[in-house]
């Protein structure tokens, strides 16, 4: 790994300042960034650690549930008063990864197979940064791409809590990411369905399923629907057709489990 300056700011304002340096990057829990730096896919001049700021850590509120950007998956799993979200956090990676990885890091990276983007998009979460608030529908732009600007820091994420919700993940056993994961959230205003792991564009909503489930919240409502494999990922773990099939299967399971 190439060397870099390690910076540990004491406040969000200091962190934002430090991130103005050329080729500086923010360090969340490092569970993705450190492996990519070892592989020399990333070689920042400075890493600005976001782990030392109390203002960015913690879980509060009941609706919305507000989670600090530097809160670990383990803490969300243990403390979030939004059961489907807590369960999702408790299934990310393994226990040691959950002690370090953070929600802000996961959302900012927007891995096309990550779990948190599905929760944020299905819940209609609001991502708060050091500059503004971004609704989830505008936040996820494409594979590994978000609406975040250079040096922008996710300070917290605010999740409206649905009446019913569930996340079902078909595990890619080697990476423990989702081969396909589906988050279903039923609000009074309608149902939102977000799919991760499937599309080359990253996390996205499945609007046909949302319509069907808003009219009739049951797995049977999905029967007549099918998912096109165009634009879905294809790799050694599963073809685009296989993933398309899984999207429907996992959506059905999520609806059943949501009750």
């Amino acid at each position: 790994m190439h060397n870099f300056d390690f910076v540990k700011p004491g406040s969000v304002a200091e962190a934002a300042e430090a991130l103005k340096a050329e080729d500086a990057m923010a360090l969340g829990g490092g569970q993705t960034l450190i492996p990519t730096m070892k592989a020399r896919l990333n070689a920042p001049s400075a890493l600005v650690s976001l782990s030392g700021m109390a203002e960015m850590v913690g879980v509060s509120g009941s609706d919305p549930v507000v989670i600090g950007g530097a809160t670990t998956h383990g803490q969300v799993a243990a403390e979030a008063g939004y059961p489907a979200l807590a369960a999702l956090a408790g299934q990310i990676g393994d226990p040691a990864v959950r002690s370090r990885g953070t929600i802000g890091g996961s959302l900012a990276n927007n891995d096309p197979a990550a779990c948190y983007p599905a929760a944020a998009l299905a819940s209609g979460a609001v991502i708060k940064t050091d500059r503004r608030e971004i609704v989830a529908d505008d936040f996820f732009v494409g594979m590994f791409e978000t609406a975040l600007e250079e040096g922008e820091i996710i300070t917290s994420v605010s999740f409206p809590v649905p009446a019913k919700a569930n996340y079902q993940k078909f595990l890619q056993p080697a990476s423990r990411f989702a081969l396909v994961g589906v988050f279903v959230a039923q609000f009074d205003s309608g149902v939102r369905v977000a799919v991760t792991g499937a599309s080359e564009e990253g996390v996205h909503r499945w609007s046909a399923a949302e319509e069907a489930l808003s009219a009739n919240f049951s797995a049977e409502a999905l029967e007549g629907l099918s998912v096109a494999s165009d634009g879905l990922m294809s790799d050694l773990h599963g073809s685009a057709e296989y993933r398309a099939h899984l999207v429907k299967v996992m959506t059905g399971r999520a609806v059943r489990a949501a009750g």
Binding site: K8, L27, G30, Q31, I34, L47, S51, V97, R100
Partner: peptide, 20 residues
């Protein structure tokens, strides 16, 4: 694996400076 502040952590995926 080691424990950092009581939590299990993969010490190959954490910078020493983070354990200051």
């Amino acid at each position: 694996q080691v424990h950092v502040n009581g939590q299990p952590v993969k010490s190959c995926t954490m910078f020493a400076a983070e354990a200051e």
